[in-house]
Design a protein around this nucleic acid. Structure first.
Lengths: 164, 164
DNA sequence: GTCCAATTACTCGGATATCCCCTGTCCGAGTCCACGAGG
DNA sequence: CCTCGTGGACTCGGACAGGGGATATCCGAGTAATTGGAC
């Protein structure tokens, strides 16, 4: 059980995009900020756009920007956009197989093992749902210093590749 | 993010093994009970044995049996034995990369995003740790009928392939 | 000076290879049980 | 009748292929800004 590495990228992107929603930021710029593969990051941002978390602006001076306020986007929203809605544990109903199989009419409720796993996943989802991108951004300000995020956001807005 | 299918098999095996600890049960018999691949199930049971949850008895009339009481084995123990101890979310510290990288001395605490993910995983683990194999077995008795598990355990103990 | 239109440069978007881990399988090492011979 | 040794069959254990999804990449579709000329 391992999450895609794109989850980390997407979360960092959403956090930095939550500072100043004015103008869109191209993928190449975000990739340069974090020193990651631009094309692969693009793939993940497309997933976020497909779920309506960010919107794309095409053409010159285009890019991505958040569609709604950072308060209304939860960490779970981002994780689900990247990883999909599928549950981690999938019950194959092996209790209904083999020589001691349970009768189908006795299996209307989910099996005991599946219920435990589902409850645990719900606890996981709940923890992620309780934290918004805004909360994370505030925490970054608290840990890394008040101006760190704003400085990164300003760098994104600056003309690309001048100093390089 | 998806768990290995072996988790389901291993949990069912531990539950049925918790009924009557007298004599070991061979892998082939367990595989026949659930109608799954014997060799692949063996691989997973080896993982359980490596973590000390079950012990192997070699030779004729050998097999696997639980090493301790079902109360002292948690669902989390089984999941960790199959999936390993690694965290689902791995922080690659991209905050320390790129042109706006944070200084290393400012990163002694885990980054805000990683903390959220770690806390969620801890909630997931906690939910799995709160349920023992004994609890699951009792719930199976409650749902599938009091004698279902005992009947399966008796079938395991019976001489193999008589009726077939 | 103003308007318009073609050009251009920059952006996203989906289709395309590559790699690694999970799935699934196999044969060899090890061990207990059974049986038979000898005392 | 009891003991011991040998054989056999059954078990686990780790080493060996195949497949699917994540990783990483590329080129084409689309759009806004620019720029040049005409009025």
């Amino acid at each position: 059980m391992r999450l895609s590495g794109g989850v980390e990228w997407a979360l960092h992107c959403c956090v930095v995009l939550s500072r100043g929603v004015e103008e869109p930021v191209p993928v190449a710029r975000l990739a340069e900020l974090y020193d990651v593969s631009p094309t692969y990051l693009a793939k993940h941002l497309q997933s976020l756009a497909a779920d309506g978390l960010i919107e794309s602006v095409r053409g010159k001076r285009g890019g991505y920007r958040l569609t709604r306020s950072a308060e209304s986007i939860t960490v779970l929203d981002v994780v689900r956009a990247i990883e999909g809605d599928g549950a981690a544990f999938v019950c194959t109903e092996i209790r209904q197989r083999g020589p001691c199989a349970a009768a189908a009419e006795d299996c209307q409720r989910a099996c005991s093992i599946a219920r435990v796993m589902i409850a645990a996943e719900e606890a996981w989802r709940s923890a992620l749902r309780d934290v918004s991108i805004r909360d994370v951004a505030d925490d970054v300000d608290r840990v890394a210093g008040k101006g760190a995020l704003t400085r990164m956001r300003s760098w994104l807005a600056a003309a690309p590749s001048i100093g390089a």
